[in-house]
Design a protein around this nucleic acid. Structure first.
Ligand code: FES
Ligand code: FES
Lengths: 153, 153
DNA sequence: GAATAGTGGACTATTTTAGTCCTGTATGAG
DNA sequence: CTCATACAGGACTAAAATAGTCCACTATTC
């Protein structure tokens, strides 16, 4: 529980892919191919990320997307905000009047404290950190290496 | 986003109510009345909490529910675990083989790091803490701090 | 043995999320 | 100038998770 949506997870992959292609623009299609996600899904994500200002887009032929800023300056919190709106651990903590229980509820403040802790954790991790995770799965990586070797040699 | 379910929030209210009624047992109906929640909903929550061992139940006439342990020893993390299963910020981080992208994904490890930070935050807050925030206003918190300072010296 | 109160699980309705599709617009190449 | 490329925006459908309800059953007390 307390999970972020799959789309946000995918969004991170997409951003990671853009970061890898740092030199130039990546088209929606190429990102989809690289990440093994559906093209419409990637398109949707890139549109959202563009609107949030995390990526820039260039229209027309030879167009595509690129990170708006260096990966070190893009935090996990920003990615979450872009794709899911502001973090709010309880429905009630985001705005007044949503809950109907506010008059009777004594626990809201503490949740908000937790909420802030979570936000700090999310702000302390950047896209660059996300990229430098060395090993997804040792066995899987080994297998890929083997396949690559077989293909090239 | 990154929100816990409403049910979990309610569960906290229910636990808070049991803590308030520390002297004896509370029936499902009385908790529902005190929290302004629906009776069937409260029933469901208490059943889940009982199964998780956070509350104890007594059947029969004069029966009811009570906290299994003092509020200081029940953490927010336990409540979340009881009502929503183990915390896992991404679908992928809970188990291997859920995602299908694992071979291509480089970001999983970092999310798990964030996940652990969140868990630490959740474990550092107890039900007792949740109870002692009588009102969410910063002014009130400041006042309490001041009183504490005044008390200690 | 009648009333009270929890147990278990099935079930429906609602909301959220995920994913798709289509129409429009800007840019560059030929 | 025209066509192909590729983003923009939003509507739409499908699928899944959540929330909430209900009922038949069991244990306990009076
Ligand atoms: S304000 Fe909504 S449950 Fe606390
Ligand atoms: S392992 Fe599933 S997206 Fe990373």
């Amino acid at each position: 529980m307390l999970r972020m949506s799959k789309l946000t997870d995918y969004g991170t992959l997409v951003l990671a892919q853009l970061a890898a292609n740092d030199r130039g623009l990546s088209t929606c299609a190429s990102v989809a191919a690289a990440t093994h996600l559906g093209q419409p899904t990637v398109s949707k994500l890139l549109k959202l990320l563009a609107r949030a200002g995390l990526v820039v887009s260039v229209r027309g032929a030879q167009g595509g997307y690129a990170l708006a800023r260096p990966p070190e300056t893009i935090t996990a919190a920003e990615i979450l905000d872009a794709l899911e709106g502001p973090v709010a651990i309880t429905a009630c903590s985001s705005a007044v009047g949503l809950c109907g229980l506010e008059g009777h509820c004594r626990v809201g403040a503490a949740w908000q404290r937790i909420n802030r802790s979570i936000r700090v954790a999310l702000e302390s991790v950047t896209l660059a950190d996300l990229l430098t995770s060395p090993d997804p799965l040792p066995a899987e990586m080994l297998e890929r290496e083997l396949r690559k070797s077989a293909a090239t040699g």
